[in-house]
Design a protein around this nucleic acid. Structure first.
Length: 229
DNA sequence: ACCCAGGTGGCCC
DNA sequence: GGGCCACATGGG
């Protein structure tokens, strides 16, 4: 089932080409800035950082907080995010001498707790960094993943780690597969059933006998459950 | 004028 | 462990 979903999604949406970035460090910056924020706004902020030649850990550490905030303003939550970037870069400097390559050489089981211990790096951000910037085989879970999986009857969510374990158990430990799968779930979540309670066009509807549609938005009525086969 | 986006930390119970 | 809240810009 989980493989079938992937096949249908990739047939429907095509490869997503995540993560659009020139360097692993840029991926990390993007992962932090995109927290609860549209990628469009994040791109602007990253472009600003590039324009002023501050897309490096060394440059960010040297930039005063106020200025850094101004540069990344478009990504929202800019005060918090400036602080998060600083904290991450400080960690990178202290632990790996600002060398992302060196960070990449650390075992996944050791690195993940280190990332999670940083203020501003939660599970999704840590896992996005591990997967998309460092090529570690971690399945990234986000709100779409949980919602879609539950609606479709894949699992009854018992929290982030449970869902992550579920995908990692059922799928081959393939970095490229994980990258594409997560991106496709986001594409599905964004594209479908946002305004309509039930999407007759949903590319995976035929896989679920109790397909209920899914929509995002914590406050939005999660829809009337219209069921159809 | 809403509503929401590729979350997280800090509270409270 | 879960439920709520602040954080903030830009686009529909």
């Amino acid at each position: 089932m989980i493989k079938k979903i992937f096949q249908k999604l990739i047939r429907h949406f095509g490869p997503q080409h995540w993560w659009p970035a020139g360097s692993p460090f840029e991926v990390i910056v993007g992962a932090i800035l995109t927290q609860q924020t549209s990628w469009k706004n994040v791109e602007k902020a990253i472009d600003s950082l590039k324009r002023v030649k501050k897309l490096s850990p060394e440059a960010i550490l040297k930039t005063p907080d106020g200025l850094l905030q101004k540069i990344i303003r478009s990504s929202g939550y800019y005060k918090q995010k400036a602080k998060k970037l600083k904290i991450f870069c400080k960690f990178l400097e202290k632990t790996f001498n600002c060398n992302v390559k060196m960070m990449r050489s650390v075992r996944l089981s050791a690195l993940r707790p280190q990332l999670l211990s940083l203020w501003g790096i939660g599970r999704e951000t840590a896992d996005s960094i591990l997967l998309y910037a460092l090529d570690k085989p971690v399945f990234v879970v986000d709100a779409y993943t949980i919602r879609i999986g539950e609606r479709v009857g894949l699992f009854r969510s018992e929290g982030y780690e449970h869902v992550r374990g579920f995908f990692e158990l059922k799928l081959a430990h393939s970095v490229t597969l994980y990258k594409e799968y997560h991106a496709l779930l986001v594409a599905l979540g964004k594209d479908h059933c946002k305004t309509k309670p039930v999407c007759a066009q949903c590319p995976i509807r035929t896989l679920c006998d109790r397909h209920q549609g899914y929509s995002m938005g914590p406050n939005r009525a999660i829809l009337k459950i219209s069921r159809y086969a």
